[in-house]
Simulated scan of single mutants.
Amino acid sequence: MVICTSVPVVIPKDGSLTKVTIKDIVGTFLTNEWPNIDPEQLTVTHNTGYANVNCVVERPRPKDYIHSEPLKVFLKIYGELDGEIEVFKHLVPNKHEETQLCFDYGQSGLGAKVYGFFQTQNGILGRVDEFLDARNLEPEDVEDMNIRADIARGLAVFHTMTTQLEKKPIQSYYDTVTRELAKYHHMDKLKTLANEGGVSMDHLVDYDFGSRLRRVTDKLESIGGKKGWCIHDFQFMNVMVKNNPMQGESKIVLLDFEFVFQNYRALDIGEHFVQKIFQWFDEESKIANCRPYIEEEKRHFCEEYARQWNEKTGDSDTGEQVFAESELGVLLAITFEIHNMLCFMDQDNDKDPLNILALNKLFEEFLSQYKRLELES
Rank of each mutant, 00 (worst) to 15 (best):
S316F: 11
D317E: 15
N340V: 07
Y305E: 08
M345K: 05
T335L: 15
D317R: 13
D317H: 15
E320D: 14
A333Q: 04
S285P: 13
D315E: 11
L354G: 08
E284Q: 07
E327Y: 04
W280L: 05
D352P: 04
D346E: 10
C290N: 12
L342N: 00
K351T: 00
Y293R: 10
D350Y: 01
N340M: 05
V330W: 00
R299F: 04
T318G: 15
E325Q: 13
A333R: 11
K276P: 00
K286L: 06
L354Q: 09
S285K: 12
F273K: 04
D317G: 11
C290E: 05
Y293P: 05
I287Y: 07
G329N: 06
T335P: 09
H300D: 05
F278M: 05
Q347V: 15
L328N: 00
F273A: 12
L357E: 15
D282G: 09
E327W: 00
D282N: 15
T335S: 15
E283K: 05
K276N: 04
T313A: 09
E295F: 04
Q308H: 03
E320P: 05
I338F: 05
L331W: 05
F323M: 10
Q321M: 14
M341S: 02
I277P: 00
P292V: 08
E327I: 01
T313Y: 04
E296S: 01
D346L: 00
E325D: 12
H339K: 02
F301M: 02
I356W: 01
F281K: 08
E311L: 14
D315Y: 10
W309V: 11
R299N: 01
N289W: 03
F273I: 08
D315L: 08
Q279S: 13
L332T: 08
D317T: 05
K351F: 09
Q308G: 07
D346H: 03
L332I: 13
Q347R: 10
E304F: 10
K276T: 04
F281E: 13
I287R: 01
Q321T: 10
E297H: 01
N349L: 10
P292I: 04
G270A: 06
L331I: 03
K351A: 14
P292N: 14
I287S: 02
E283C: 02
A333P: 11
K351I: 01
N355I: 06
T313K: 02
K312T: 11
F273W: 07
K312R: 13
E327G: 09
E304D: 15
E303R: 00
R307N: 13
G329A: 09
L342G: 01
E284D: 13
L357D: 02
H272I: 10
E320Q: 13
F336S: 08
E297K: 01
Q275L: 12
A324R: 12
P353N: 09
S316K: 13
N340W: 00
I334L: 15
H272C: 06
E297W: 01
L328H: 08
I294Q: 12
A324Q: 08
F344Y: 00
Q347N: 14
W309T: 10
L332S: 15
E337Q: 12
F273L: 06
E284R: 09
E295Q: 12
A333S: 13
L332E: 02
V330F: 07
I277E: 14
A288N: 06
W280M: 08
L328A: 11
N349M: 05
D282K: 04
